[in-house]
Structure formats: C-alpha cells, structure tokens
C-alpha cells in the first residue's frame, strides 16, 4: 500500500486499484462489472464464467490486506441490474460472506441503476463521507471534493522503446477518478477528452508503483 493524499485527507493505494481510507477504515473500489461475462453469453459470446469470482476474490484479498471494515463500491458494480441474479453459486457465497463481514455500500451507476437483488449491503445513489462526495460519474460542476469511477482510466507511455500501460487514477485538487477494478473491464486513455471534460483543469494521471505514486500531468 502506497500513501496518497487527496483533498487534505490521507489514503493508501492498493496494487489492485482500490483506495483505502484509513481514518474511516474504508475500502473504495469502482466499476466491478460483476457478471459481465454472462451478460455477453446471453448473446452468444461465451466468455469465461469466472469473472465475478476473480473480482470478488480480489476484493476479499484487499479487505484482508487493508483490514477495512467498510467497502464502498462506486457504481457499475454489476454489469447490468439483473447481474446479481446470475452470480454462480460460489461467487454468490463469497460475495454474501463479504457483505456480511463488513459494512458494504453499493453506489449505483449507469450499468446497475435499479438493481434489485444485491447479496446484502445497502444501495444508494451517492454517499457523503467526511465531506467527500462518493458517486459513480464525476459531475463537472460539483463544488465539493468528489471521488468517482465510470471512466476506467489507464495510462499508456512509451519510453526507451518500450510500451507501458497501467490502470491509473485521474485527479485534480478536488476530484479523483478511480481505475476500474473488475477482472474483465477494459480501459480508456487517461487523457481522453471525455475524462478531461469531466475533470476540468489541472488533471493528472496517478500511477502507483511499489513505493510511491507517480504523477503525470494531462494536457487539457
């Protein structure tokens, strides 16, 4: 875990792309897209039915690693609002065990808005913790500090003849977008106009490495 300060609060970044907020013993994760594979299977693309299990296993590892007592999922936790119904037995058991073990908050996103079954935990549209707004998609005119997901940012650089591509955070002074956490989630370039529009001026991509967080300013 690598320390990261945002909006005068101290966080730690996990290698998986989760954010840990020690003051509140809370783990923040975005865009799990559980049951993405089975959503595609309905239309004939038989993707491996293990994506939910892979994602849930990773969350369980992060909860154990950080010691978190609360988990906030910043939206698009299921690939569609019926996703939870399709969870395979093992994955469902693991998720239910997690939502019972810690305080679990599902913030809904565009994919899972109106979700019905959710294996426990509470469902909200957004949440405010210690003055920070937690929501799915960043709002350009939000005056309060805000944490969100939705865009699946990743950074690609080319150096000394080598290409490096990593999931990353995008942050300004008052806004931060988390990388997508789900096992089958793709990425969008951190400097994509859609991200820069949502973030406003002064955005930077934040890339955690083993001992610190690197900062790459993004041209607006």
């Amino acid at each position: 875990m690598v320390p990261l300060s945002f909006a005068s609060r101290n966080f730690a970044v996990l290698p998986s792309g989760a954010l840990y907020w020690e003051a509140h013993e809370a783990l923040l994760i975005a865009d799990l897209h559980l049951e993405k594979a089975s959503w595609f299977a309905r239309f004939g693309q038989m993707l491996p039915p293990y994506d939910s299990e892979a994602t849930i296993d990773a969350v369980a590892e992060d909860v154990a690693l950080s010691g978190a007592r609360a988990v906030y999922c910043l939206g698009d936790s299921f690939h569609d609002r019926f996703g939870c119904d399709r969870l395979p037995q093992d994955a469902r058991a693991k998720l239910t065990a997690l939502t019972q073990a810690v305080r679990w908050v599902w913030i809904t996103g565009n994919h899972d808005a109106g979700m019905i079954d959710h294996c426990g935990g509470e469902v909200v549209v957004e949440s405010i913790v210690d003055g920070l707004v937690l929501r799915h998609e960043a709002e350009a005119h939000e005056p309060r500090p805000e944490l969100s997901g939705h865009f699946h940012p990743k950074l690609r650089i080319k150096a000394r003849g080598r290409r490096v591509s990593r999931r990353c955070f995008v942050a300004t002074e008052k806004k931060m977008i988390l990388p997508a956490y789900g096992a089958l989630t793709g990425g969008l370039d951190a400097d994509h106009p859609a991200i820069l529009r949502a973030m406003g001026r002064g955005a930077a991509a934040l890339v955690p490495v083993s001992d610190r967080v690197l900062r790459f300013p993004l041209a607006a």
């Binding site: 491996p48 293990y50 994506d51 989630t185």
Partner: peptide, 23 residues
C-alpha cells in the same frame, strides 16, 4: 468513441488462466 464496447482478450486470458487453465 469514448465508450468501451469491446473487451480485451488479454483479460479473458488472465481469468481463464487462473480459473480454468486446461480449457
């Protein structure tokens, strides 16, 4: 543009390698 409609076979590979490597 700006929307992820595709998914990477690399990620599928990673999941399959972990959960069903003999597929």
């Amino acid at each position: 543009t700006g929307k992820q409609v595709s998914f990477s076979t690399d990620l599928i590979y990673d999941v399959l390698k972990r959960y069903e490597p003999d597929h």
